[in-house]
Nucleic acid binder design. Structure first.
Lengths: 333, 333
DNA sequence: TTGTAGGCGTTATCAT
DNA sequence: ATGATAACGCCTACAA
C-alpha cells in the first residue's frame, strides 16, 4: 500500500502538502492540489486511518452499546444511528450489554479502550451514578432511551409516561373498566414510567389500581404468557389487558387464543413500541408508536454536533409516543 | 492517560519489557513482571489500541457487511458473529450494503480502509468476479450465505436447494398437487437455489412446473401480497403456496385472510427461514429452519482460525436446513 | 502557499 | 531476560 511519503515524492511536494490535500484543507493552490491528486490516483493511495487516528487523536468511530443485536427494537435503533453517521464518514463499533450490569460496564470499557470519539449507550442495568461518573471522563457519552438528571444535553429519550398514559386512556375510552396490566422489569426506567402513565390514566378516570390485575413480566414473549396465565389462574375478571411492550402483548395474545379466548371480542389487548410484529400478529395489534429509528438518527446527530463540530444541527431531546389503532381493542360502547 | 513510557519509568524497566508484559509474552521474569503489573495498576494504565494497531499492523477488529441492520435475519447473524468474536477480544465494525451493488462496494471499501483484520460479508448484489478479485487483496475475506467456486474455504453457506426441496416435498406429502410458488429476486443466489429445490421436488413426484402458479417477489411482505394477488386475479386454482421466505409468506397470509380465504383449510402456506415472526403469526407458520445464528458463530470461528491463529477450531462450511411443522399446512389426506 | 521536523504510543529487531 | 532504537504512517505547529 502506498504511503503519503511516496505520494509526496511522486508529486514533487512535501508530506505536509499531501496531508493538507487529504484533509481537505483549503490552503493549497489548485495546481499543486491537482498534482497531488494525480499522484494519489496513480499510486491508488488510501490514507491509513490508523495512523491518522494516532496522529490526530481521532478515530472517526463511535461506539454503540445495545442490549441485544437482534430483536426489532435495537435493529431499528442501530439502523438509524449507522445511516446518519455513515454519510458523515464515521463508523460504528457495536457491542452488547445484555441488560446486565457487569456486561454493560465491560462493553463500555471495551469501547473506550478502542478510542471511540464518542459513545452512544442504551444501558439498562448500570446506575445513574455510574453514568454520571463516566461522563466526567474524556470520551463524550450520549444516552438513548434514558434520562439522567443533570445530563439532559446528552440524552435522547421517549416520554414513556405519556405512552403508558395514552395506552390505558385508549382502553378506558372504549368503555373498559376491568383492566389488567403486565409491566416490564421495574429496574428499567422505561418500564417504571410506562406503569406510572398507566396509573395516571386510571386515576384521571377515577378508577382504582387493582393489584390482582397487575403482573410484572420480562418484556419478552414469556412475560406475556406468564402474566395472562397468572390472571386466568386467579380467576380475575377483566376485559382488557395493557402490556408494557409488544412482545409481551404477542405472548399474551397467543396464550389467550390457545385457551379459547377470542380477541378482541372477549379480551382487548394493547401493546407498546409498535415493532414490526405488531402488524403481523392476528388480530393486528393496537399499540403505542415508539419512534426508535428517528431517535437513533437524532442520537447520531447529537454526536455529529457535539463531537464532530456540525454546529448547525437541530437536536430534539425528547420524543413523544403516539397511539396507533388497529384491531386488538374491542369497543364496548 | 498514562503511557507505556510512564509505566516503564515507574517500574524501573524499559519500554520493551512493559510491552512484553502487556502482550503476554512469556520471556519476562516473574519479578519484573510483577513490578510492571504494579506500576500499571498504580497508573491505571490501558494500552492505546490505536498505537498498538499502527505498530503491529493489526486492529483486532473485523468488518461485517450486512444488507440491513434491522430485520430478524441479520440481527441473529450479527449476534452470532459478535458473541463469538467478543470473547476472543476482537470487535466488529458493522456497515450495510442494502443489496445494492454500489453500496456494497462502498461498504467494503470503507471497511478495508479501516484496516480491519478480516471481513465477513453478506453480499447479494456484487458479482462473483468482483469477490474473487477482492480476495486477492491483503485483507482476508469470508462470505456468509454465498458459495463462490474456488473460494470454498472462505464460505459459510446454507444448502438452499435442499431447503427448497424439503418445503415443497412437505407440501406434496400432505396430498397437495396444485402448488403455487412465490420466489425471491432471481439475482440472489439463495432465491435461485430455493427455486431449484422446489422444481426438483416437483419433478421427483412427476408434477409439472406450472408457470401460471409462479411469481417472483422481493423477499419482503409486499412480495407476498403481490404474489397472491396475482394468483387470485388469474383465477388460478391452488391449494398450497410455497414462499421462498417467511416475510413473503406472512404478507401472503395476511392478504389471503383479508380476502376471506381461511388458512390452512382453504390454503396451505409454507415459508423459509424460521424468523421469529413465524411463531407469532396466525396460524403459526410451517417453515424451513435457517440456522443463521449458528452460521454467524461459524463465520466468526473461521476468522479466528485463519486470521487469529486459533488453529484448533473445527469449521463446518455447509449447513443443512430442516423442516419445522406448525399449523399453516393442511393435510389433504 | 509550502516545507521542516517533532511527535502520537506502540511493537519489533537487534544487541547485550 | 532485558534494553536501545528504529519503524509504523500520518498530523501539525512553526518556519520560510
Amino acid at each position: 500500500m502506498a504511503t503519503i511519503y511516496e505520494v509526496s515524492k511522486l508529486a514533487g511536494v512535501s508530506l505536509a502538502t499531501v496531508s493538507r490535500v487529504t484533509s481537505k484543507n483549503t490552503k493549497v493552490s489548485d495546481k499543486t492540489r491537482q498534482k497531488v491528486l494525480d499522484a494519489m490516483k496513480e499510486l491508488d493511495y488510501r490514507p491509513n486511518s490508523i495512523a491518522q487516528s494516532l496522529a490526530s487523536n481521532r478515530t472517526n468511530s463511535v461506539g454503540i452499546l445495545v442490549s441485544e443485536l437482534h430483536g426489532p427494537f435495537f435493529g431499528l435503533m442501530m439502523a438509524g444511528i449507522e445511516e446518519e453517521l455513515r454519510v458523515a464518514g464515521k463508523h460504528v463499533i457495536i457491542t452488547t450489554g445484555h441488560s446486565d450490569e457487569e456486561k454493560e460496564k465491560d462493553g463500555i470499557d471495551f469501547l473506550i479502550s478502542r478510542n471511540c470519539d464518542a459513545l452512544i449507550l442504551h444501558v439498562e442495568a448500570v446506575t445513574d451514578e455510574y453514568i454520571i461518573e463516566l461522563c466526567k471522563g474524556k470520551t463524550p457519552i450520549f444516552l438513548m432511551n434514558r434520562y439522567v438528571d443533570g445530563l439532559n444535553e446528552n440524552c435522547i429519550s421517549l416520554d414513556n409516561e405519556l405512552g403508558g398514559y395514552l395506552a390505558t386512556k385508549a382502553i378506558i375510552e372504549k368503555g373498559h373498566s376491568d383492566i389488567a396490566y403486565i409491566a416490564g422489569p421495574q429496574f428499567k426506567d422505561d418500564a417504571q414510567d410506562r406503569l406510572a402513565g398507566h396509573k395516571r390514566a386510571l386515576a384521571e378516570h377515577n378508577m382504582p389500581f387493582n393489584n390482582d390485575l397487575f403482573y410484572i413480566g420480562d418484556f419478552r414473549e414469556a412475560g406475556g404468557i406468564d402474566g395472562i396465565k397468572y390472571f386466568i389462574n386467579n380467576k380475575s375478571n377483566f376485559t382488557a389487558l395493557v402490556c408494557a411492550n409488544d412482545e409481551m402483548a404477542a405472548g399474551a395474545m397467543i396464550h389467550a387464543r390457545e385457551n379459547g379466548i377470542t380477541i378482541p371480542n372477549e379480551l382487548s389487548i394493547i401493546g407498546f413500541d409498535n415493532i414490526i410484529l405488531a402488524r403481523y400478529i392476528y388480530p393486528k395489534l393496537t399499540t403505542i408508536v415508539n419512534p426508535i429509528d428517528e431517535m437513533g438518527h437524532m442520537a447520531a446527530k447529537l454526536v455529529l454536533k457535539h463531537v464532530y463540530q456540525q454546529k448547525d444541527l437541530l437536536i430534539q431531546h425528547a420524543f413523544q409516543p403516539v397511539l396507533i389503532t388497529r384491531d386488538s381493542v374491542f369497543d364496548l360502547k
